[in-house]
Design a protein around this nucleic acid. Sequence first.
DNA 1: CGCACAATTATGCAAGCGTATAATTCCGGT
DNA 2: ACCGGAATTATACGCTTGCATAATTGTGCG
Lengths: 221, 221
Amino acid sequence: MAGERRKFRREGEERRRDQLVAAALEIIAEKGPDAATVRTIAERAGVTQGLIRHYFTSKGDLTRAAYQSHMQRMNEVSFAALDSAPQEPLARLEAFVSTTLSPPALNGTAVGLWSAFLQMIRRDPEMMVVHEANYLAFRDRLEGLIAALPGQRSPAELRALAIACTAVIDGLWLEGSAYPEGFDANELAAIGWRAVSAILGIDTPARAGTGPRPTTKETLP
Amino acid sequence: MAGERRKFRREGEERRRDQLVAAALEIIAEKGPDAATVRTIAERAGVTQGLIRHYFTSKGDLTRAAYQSHMQRMNEVSFAALDSAPQEPLARLEAFVSTTLSPPALNGTAVGLWSAFLQMIRRDPEMMVVHEANYLAFRDRLEGLIAALPGQRSPAELRALAIACTAVIDGLWLEGSAYPEGFDANELAAIGWRAVSAILGIDTPARAGTGPRPTTKETLP
DNA sequence: CGCACAATTATGCAAGCGTATAATTCCGGT
DNA sequence: ACCGGAATTATACGCTTGCATAATTGTGCG
């Protein structure tokens, strides 16, 4: 009667690890890090909790693996969008900004993950390394896009511009994800592109008249 | 010899609540939200844990009170910095940006608090209301500073500019706080001011000589 | 001075946590 | 066919958590 032991199938180690990592990420994103207990993660992955300790030396180990996996996937998505972009530097940059500030990159679950991991980053040096590497990867990619634009800029100048553009994109992404009701559909992408253009000293392509004209004193007729 | 009962002093209700709120904020900022248990909070406040339930109906109630208090204080600090600023609109704006992107506003504990609360905001509608109100208050203040600049801007234009400037400030504040080794002392404030200037169409102060000419339409006499 | 009552401490409890370990069951090699 | 070991489940333990309640003690008021 009671002794119905659960049936199971054996899976490869890699696949099991991926399942557990995916389950952990889902739960952290949906219900927060506190809800991501060993038991709920195992349940979501369709196994029992003991298996976690069979594939990870501790729960923290699983959490680190999940963070690494999440960051890697974000990177890949970002890269993929760039690969299918056109070739003109300006269009590439615009595509990059627009992609980052539109769904699916802009979504509520990602910011949940982001803030959850930020907590751990501050206490776990190993996670800090991953964070640093990924932040710099994002910025460097953006810096590369900027460097490809017409005009010459010194390295220091490039660095400052990349930091500023990264910041405005991050800030918009964050508020748009955390407080989605506050903005229209394409509003953030449009604002982001205008801001990046302005920072880089590019004439805003879309709406002449209202756009900032940074340098020249005498303007239009 | 075991029966040494702890001595205590009675305090007013308001004072005790403040002490508990302050203790909770300190612990969340320093050690993360998981470390902020009823017992550690009480210990930090110099009382025993039972007292928390005497002044707050639950731990969540205390946490909400802590968030409210934190946000209110951030607001006051921000306001105070503006009050002692000069009167010319441009200088006021620059002071605001610079203050926000320099210590003590820029520090690691604040971002710890920020990301910890962001977690709760996503699950607690009551906290979401507080967050929304404070984000909009920040943005509105910034929008007011922008509106005071010479030149005319439509309400829609003002909104977009305020969103963009808020985003760049938030993004810089965030990365500077979360990853302080990555930036020089005044670097972020300088980058922030340059970015805001560019977004608003103001000539960067370094290359002085030309006054701010924000709009392309007819503006000045 | 002492008394009543709120403020505070002390103790207890059930639930949930991560971890350790024992018990089973699947599955490939022979 | 079956067996040995790895994969997986099951159970248990010690600890911490938030919350409840009982026991005390400080203190304003007569």
